[in-house]
């Protein structure tokens, strides 16, 4: 199916920290939108995984956040920013297996320390910026083939 994007599409979702019941809703909505647009399956899967990991981190670590998406004929740009504790050592946080998730989060199946590496793996451009005490911003671009 050809990609049905002749104009740019933008939108955003609110993400509420600690809200595990609706966790993944934003990423699922975006996934649905991309399906409707006829975007390539593999691109949809990569976008869904990357946004879901970002969304989960906001839910686990921050008070609140927002996911903004921008779809163009060239690809998908995503920006996830949160009002949270921020990350002190980004290089360390990017390492596979590094996690500060508390036990109750681990009991729910999170805290493998794979979320940020997963986002990087699935996006063509990945940027992370964080200010301790203020929050974290993740920017990702996934290009269409």
């Amino acid at each position: 199916m050809p990609i049905n994007i002749d104009k740019e599409i933008e939108g955003s979702f609110q993400i509420i920290g600690g809200n595990f019941v609706n966790a993944g809703e934003a990423s699922t909505q975006l996934k649905l939108l991309l399906s409707k647009l006829g975007v390539d399956e593999d691109i949809i899967r990569r976008t869904a995984i990357a946004t879901f990991e970002a969304e989960m981190n906001v839910i686990i670590y921050a008070a609140a956040g927002r996911m903004h998406y921008h779809i163009t004929p060239r690809g998908i740009s995503i920006k996830v920013d949160d009002m949270g504790p921020g990350i002190e050592d980004i290089e360390l946080a990017m390492q596979e297996g590094y996690s500060t998730a508390p036990d109750w989060v681990r009991e729910m199946g999170w805290g493998a320390g794979m979320g940020l590496p997963n986002m990087k793996k699935n996006s063509d451009i990945f940027k992370i910026d964080s200010v301790v005490g203020e929050g974290t911003t993740i920017e990702m671009v996934i290009n269409f083939p």
Binding site: F20, V21, A23, G24, E25, S27, T28, K31, R45, A48, I49, F52, M56, M108, G109
Partner: peptide, 10 residues
């Protein structure tokens, strides 16, 4: 939990 179902979907 529900987020396991969502993980599967993703």
């Amino acid at each position: 939990q529900a987020h396991v179902i969502r993980t599967a979907e993703i």
